[in-house]
Design a protein around this nucleic acid. Structure first.
Lengths: 235, 235
DNA sequence: TAGATTGTTAATCGATTAACAATC
DNA sequence: TAGATTGTTAATCGATTAACAATC
C-alpha cells in the first residue's frame, strides 16, 4: 500500500479532476446548507452532475476522506476540498478593464463568497477613474504594480477589449502576477510559469451552434415523422 | 430509414476538435484582416496558440483544405471552418436574466459579429421591463415561448441568479430551445438532446487558485517533500 | 528536380468507466 | 453478522504528439 501524507497526495492531481473539485465544493456547500450531515458518493455525484465512479476516483487523488459502508461527512469533505483547492485562504484579485463586463465581474458576489477579494479595479480611461463599482474605486492602470505589491495580488482578471489584453497581461506578469483569467477574445503569450485561463463567450456560443446545426441536419435528414417535432410543441 | 448526405465530411468530429474550431476561425480572421492570403499550419497554429500537429489533425477531420508544399488559403479555410461550425448562418439568441451580467452579455459586440443575433432580453422583474439594453427592449419572462416561436430561437443564454436557473431552463426546453449557455452557478437538469454549456466565473478562479497555491508551495521550499516526486510509483 | 508542407499513421498519454475487494 | 459503500484496479475510450510518406 502506498503511503501518503496529505502534502504528498496533493502532488499528482490530474487537470480534469482539478477542474471538477470546485463543482464538488459547490455541491457540498448546497448539501451543508440543506442540513445534510453525511452523503454517499452517489448523492454527491448527483448533486454535482457527474457519475459516482468518477467522483470516487477524483476524491481518491486527495486522500481517503470517506467511510466505507457509510459515506462522506459533508463538513469534513467540504473542508478538505476547500483546503486542497486553496480557498480556505483569501485571494486578493485585481480586475483590469471596467467596461460592461468589468462592471459585472466587480459586482459578482460569487467571487467574494468563495475566498476571492477584489482589491482593485483598474482602467486606462481617465473618465472611468471617478467611478466607484461595488464599493471599490476605479483607479489608473498605471497603479497596477503598486497595488499588486501592496496587496500581494497573485491573480489578475482581464476584461479589456481584445487589442489591449496582451499589454495588460505583460504588465501583470511584470508586476509579479502568475495567474490570469482572460475574458478578452485573444490568445495571450505569457512566460512559462504563468497560468492563463480563458473565458470566451462567443466561442461557447459557436460550440453550441455546431451541435445545434448537426441536430437540425439530423432532424431534416431523418424520415418525415420526426420532422414534425420541429414545428410542433414538445410534450 | 435514415439517408445521410454529408456534404463533405460532417462525420464525427471529436469534441476537443470542435472546441478549437472557433479558435482557428478567430485566428484566420486576424490573418485575413492583416491581408495574409496564405498560411502554413505552423503560422496558423502559432496564431491560435496550439501546436501545428494538433492543428493539422483537427483540420483533417473537416477535409483536405490545404495544399502540400504551400499551405492553406486563408479565405477558403476561413469559409470552410465557418460553414462547419455553422456560423455562416444567423443564430437568433435569447438572453434571460438582465442583471449586471445580462447587461454585459446583451452589449457584447462579439456575439453579433459572429453570427449570433440577440432577438430578446427577458427578465422576471417588472421593474426591468422599461429598460432598453443595446437597442433591445427588456420583456417579461412569460413572453419566452412566443419569442422563441416567432424568431425560431434555438439558443438560450441564462444569466439569472442560481435559484432561478433551473426554472428558466425548464421553460426554455418546453419552448423548444435545445442549446443553452448557462452562466448561473448551478447544475442544470435537462432532457437528452438538449446541450448545456456552462461558464462559471468562480470555478475558473478556483482552478487558478489551486495552481497558484501549488506554485507558492513550491517557491516556499517544498524541495524536501518533493524528493521522490519524479520517481515512478511503486507498483 | 529540390524544397516545403500537408494529411495520416501509430505510439503515447490521460481520462473515463465498470466492477469488485476491502471494510465500515 | 449482513448490508452498504468506499477506494482501487484494470479495461476502454479519447486526445495528443512525433514522425514521415505523399505530393504540391
Amino acid at each position: 500500500m502506498t503511503e501518503r501524507t496529505p502534502s504528498e497526495a496533493s502532488r499528482d492531481i490530474p487537470e480534469a479532476t482539478v477542474a471538477r473539485l470546485p463543482v464538488y465544493l459547490r455541491a457540498l456547500t448546497g448539501l451543508s446548507e440543506a442540513g445534510t450531515a453525511t452523503c454517499s458518493s452517489e448523492d454527491l455525484a448527483t448533486a454535482a452532475g457527474v457519475n459516482s465512479a468518477k467522483l470516487r476516483k477524483d476524491l481518491s487523488y486527495l486522500g481517503s476522506y470517506g467511510t466505507r459502508g457509510v459515506g462522506y461527512d459533508v463538513e469534513y469533505l467540504l473542508y478538505q476540498i476547500a483546503r486542497e483547492i486553496g480557498v480556505t485562504q483569501d485571494w486578493p484579485v485585481v480586475i483590469v478593464g471596467i467596461g460592461n463586463l468589468g462592471h459585472a465581474l466587480a459586482s459578482f458576489s460569487g467571487f467574494r463568497s468563495r475566498g476571492f477579494r477584489v482589491v482593485a479595479l483598474l482602467d486606462a480611461d481617465p473618465r472611468r477613474h471617478s467611478e466607484v463599482v461595488a464599493g471599490v474605486d476605479v483607479r489608473p492602470f498605471s497603479d497596477l504594480e503598486a497595488i499588486v505589491h501592496e496587496h500581494g495580488v497573485a491573480i489578475g482578471v482581464i476584461s479589456t477589449p481584445a487589442p489591449a489584453a496582451q499589454d495588460v497581461a505583460d504588465h501583470m506578469v511584470a508586476a509579479g502576477i502568475r495567474s490570469i483569467l482572460n475574458f478578452a477574445p485573444t490568445v495571450l503569450a505569457v512566460p512559462d510559469g504563468v497560468d492563463v485561463r480563458k473565458v470566451d463567450l462567443s466561442i461557447e456560443l459557436q460550440i453550441l451552434a455546431y451541435h445545434e446545426q448537426r441536430k437540425a441536419l439530423g432532424a431534416a435528414g431523418v424520415a418525415r415523422g420526426a420532422g414534425g417535432e420541429l414545428e410542433g410543441r414538445p410534450a
